[in-house]
Nucleic acid binder design. Structure first.
Length: 720
RNA sequence: GGGCGAUUAGCUCAGUUGGUAGAGCAACCCCUUUACACGGGGAAGGUCACAGGUUCGAGUCCUGUAUCGCCCACCA
């Protein structure tokens, strides 16, 4: 018997060695599996693309969970004989990455992006991204992820850039991408627009001021942002509001805090007569709602009073002031003029930028948009409908199912998607201008063309991920074999950001679905249920965890009992429990190999032993069904339970007397049974705990392939 | 304001199409029995949030209530 079994299981010595051996074998690559004869040439394909981690730093426990779940399905399908491909990659994550690097430069050198210039900043970001990439790749390997590294992709590399330009041009030509002057979410801190989904609302205490524009203005108005009132062009009241009926349609001039304004009173049913005074001051340039109301009543959008650095642009005492200071100035002025009627405490949801924390300043700007409610040429449907349909029809299945409702709800409320960003890191908008001329897609030849300064929202390129990773727009063999992909596994928090956009982009560009099943995992929280975050310092680093307990233990702890779509709590204690299990398995192997290694593994079984084997068959079928039906959280628990409480506690224990007894037939039977059960257990457990099972398998007399990784799944039925 | 989810043993959670409640951890008792103390054996612990209903039978299905959590919208 191997000497290695004489010591307790040492994960740290084993795992890195095993991964290197797997990698060296080339068997993560399905082409190599076919070449080496472990997969049939006509085997059906099974493909998953890795949700590309952002190159902003390192992986967290959520990533570890994602890797565990995906690797389970991949390893299972590989053992079932599928032509199995799992494509790795990373995401340039435009805003997120640029803002991390900008912060660092600001801190270290006191410089901002304009001090460095576009070229230098990009160079710095690329260096950072490269380092971050290398860290991430080593973390992916540490977790045991059986990714085909020969196909690694990056959302900003040349192949993916070509896919981006191609889709952009197709959408532009189809009339679905347009350039429009509209209210955008401007982030003054990040100096860019962001999409609606990148906003987080924070509740803050605020004051609600009730005032009049001038002494002879007939209607009092309530606002939380008095400084914007110098940009007002109207006052809206509800059409049925008897108090103000007589003023509707009238126009007034005033000088408000040194700024001449012109106000028209309009009636609009959006206005809630019960809130404040029942009258809303309209600032179309600095509020989405006001812009929409102004639209309906032909009021000007042109009065802009705040600029991109959140300072006042008007003349007079407010000139050049920050909005927060301007607010105080206006309130003082209102008081001194006797125009302030009331000041109340209230609560306000302040829109902030997810990445930078900057307070969003709605501004009208010229931006690129994807129109979601316009018919897609040749399809007879809008992009919205194309996003809804495959989920409605069941072509795409979302697990857990209740997220389908959330998905529908989100899409029904979807507005046009702003895809341009005023940052430098990312895919430059593939549009060139020369006077009145415009070129889209590829750079035009000839002099005098200048490219659009903006870059694309990072989700534009991630939206293409399932097919851009397979070499599209070229008609590659990979694309033909592996698309649509089978499974997309990710956190429910990016259902809208990413899943929805992949469906949109794939339906548009290919007229098909990107994946058949969406498996959504929940958040990994700390032991007391808090979100893990840097600022709380309660992060569990997957590298620390694997070093301490082993990747196998970490994977089990993340998977067992963790139902899809539900947040889980993670503690070192739970992981420790599965480290103990790894050691238990190790000792089971020691006992079995010690007592049965050189015996006949196919010796005839006694009736009792045959029954034990048959119970194992039943369990195998049960676990297989669980995996097929995406209940990996149960499958993992069942194989754990089987190994410990059936195989070890019952079969092994009762074997002791049989093995030391005098009945040679019973002994031979029992030895064969032990070897067989251990062999079955290793195979069933391999997708969950790949390292230790592989290590034990290498010492098994039943070993029938170079690696357990490509050994056969232990059930009788053929490929479905 | 709209939507979704949760409520099961001290804690964390499972419970697949309805068939007399399960695991891990913690706590209690015993055991250093040569696979394993990263272990073994044993005992204890729950009117499955509450109220109705359907059913021969409900943790599971339906209706309502309460509490907690999340998502979306964003009222000036």
């Amino acid at each position: 018997m191997d000497e290695k079994f004489l010591k307790p299981y040492d994960s740290s010595a084993t795992e890195s060695r095993i991964y290197a051996e797997w990698e060296k074998s080339g068997l993560f690559n399905p082409d190599e599996c076919i070449r080496q004869g472990v997969t049939g040439t006509d085997a059906p394909a099974y493909s998953v693309v890795l949700p590309p981690p952002n190159v902003t730093g390192r992986l967290h426990m959520g990533h570890a969970l994602m890797l565990a779940v995906e690797d389970i399905f991949i390893r299972y399908k590989r053992m079932r004989g599928f032509r199995t491909l799992w494509v790795p990659g990373t995401d340039h994550a435009a805003i997120a990455t640029q803002s991390v690097v900008e912060k660092q430069i600001k801190k270290d050198e006191g410089l901002n992006r304009h001090d460095l210039g576009r070229e230098e900043l990009l160079k710095r970001i690329e260096t950072f991204a490269m380092e971050s990439h290398d860290t991430i790749v080593s973390q992916l390997k540490t977790m045991g992820a059986s990714l085909d590294w020969s196909r690694e992709a990056f959302t900003l590399d040349e192949t993916r850039s070509r896919a981006v330009r191609t889709v952009f041009k197709q959408m532009y030509d189809a009339g679905l991408i347009y350039r429009g002057h509209r209210i955008v979410n401007w982030d003054p801190r990040g100096q860019t627009t962001i999409s609606d989904d990148e906003i987080v609302y924070e509740e803050r205490a605020a004051k609600l001021y009730t005032f009049r524009y001038s002494k002879d203005f007939p209607i009092p108005v309530a606002t939380t942002r008095p400084e914007t009132k110098v940009g007002d062009v109207g006052v809206a009241v509800h059409p049925d509001d008897a108090r103000y009926k007589e003023f509707v349609g009238k126009e007034y001039d005033a000088v408000f805090c040194d700024v001449p304004i012109h106000i028209k009173v309009v009636a609009d049913k959006e206005v809630d007569p019960a809130f404040g005074t029942g009258a809303v001051g309209l600032t179309p340039a600095h509020s989405q709602t006001d812009w929409d109301i102004a639209d309906r009543h032909m009021l000007s959008h042109e009065v802009i009073v705040i600029n991109e650095i959140a300072k006042m642009t008007v003349e007079g005492r407010l000139h050049g002031k920050k909005t927060t200071e301007a607010r105080e100035t206006v309130v003082e002025w209102l008081k001194s003029e006797g125009l302030l009627e009331k000041e109340e405490d209230t609560k306000q949801n302040v829109a902030t930028a997810e990445r930078t924390g900057g307070i969003i300043e709605p501004l009208p700007k010229l931006q690129w948009w994807i129109e979601v409610e316009k018919e897609v040429p040749g399809r007879g449907k809008t992009l919205k409908e194309l996003m809804l349909e495959p989920v409605r029809s069941g072509q795409i299945k979302i697990i857990p199912e209740h997220f389908e409702k959330t998905y529908f709800h989100w899409i029904e409320n979807l507005r046009d998607w702003c895809i341009s960003r005023q940052i430098w890191y990312g895919h430059r908008i593939p549009v060139w201008y020369k006077g009145e001329e415009i070129a889209v897609g590829e750079a035009p030849t000839g002099a005098g063309w200048t490219q659009d300064e903006d870059t694309l929202d990072t989700w534009f390129s991630s939206g293409l991920w399932t097919f851009s990773t397979l070499g599209w727009p070229d008609e590659t063999a990979d694309f033909k074999t592996y698309h649509p992909t089978d499974l997309l596994e990710t956190g429910y928090d990016i259902l809208f950001f990413w899943i929805a956009r992949m469906i949109l982009m794939t339906e548009f560009a290919l007229g098909t679905i990107p994946f058949k099943t969406v498996y959504l995992h929940g958040l990994v929280r700390d032991a007391s249920g808090r979100k893990m975050s840097k600022s709380l310092g309660n992060n569990l680093d997957p590298l620390d965890i694997t070093a301490k307990f082993g990747a196998d233990a970490a994977r089990m702890a993340l998977v067992v009992g963790n139902t899809p779509g539900t947040d889980m709590r993670m503690s070192e204690d739970k992981i420790k429990g599965y480290k103990h299990f790894a050691n238990k398995l190790w000792n089971i192997a020691r006992f079995v190999l010690d007592n049965a290694k050189d015996t006949d593994p196919v010796a005839p079984l006694t009736t009792g032993d045959a029954e034990i084997l048959s119970a194992c068959d039943t369990m195998s079928a049960d676990i297989t069904r669980d995996i097929e039906e995406f209940r990996v959280y149960m499958a993992a628990d069942k194989i754990y339970h089987y190994a410990w409480h059936e195989l070890a506690d019952k079969v092994l224990e009762e074997s002791k007397s049989i093995l030391s007894g005098s009945d040679a037939v019973a002994k031979a039977s029992r030895q064969a049974l032990l070897i067989t059960l251990l062999d079955r257990t290793l195979r069933l457990l391999h997708p969950f705990m790949p390292f230790i099972t592989e290590e034990i398998y290498q010492s098994m007399p039943t070993k029938d392939s170079k690696f357990l990784m490509v050994a056969k799944w232990p059930i009788k039925s053929a490929l479905e």
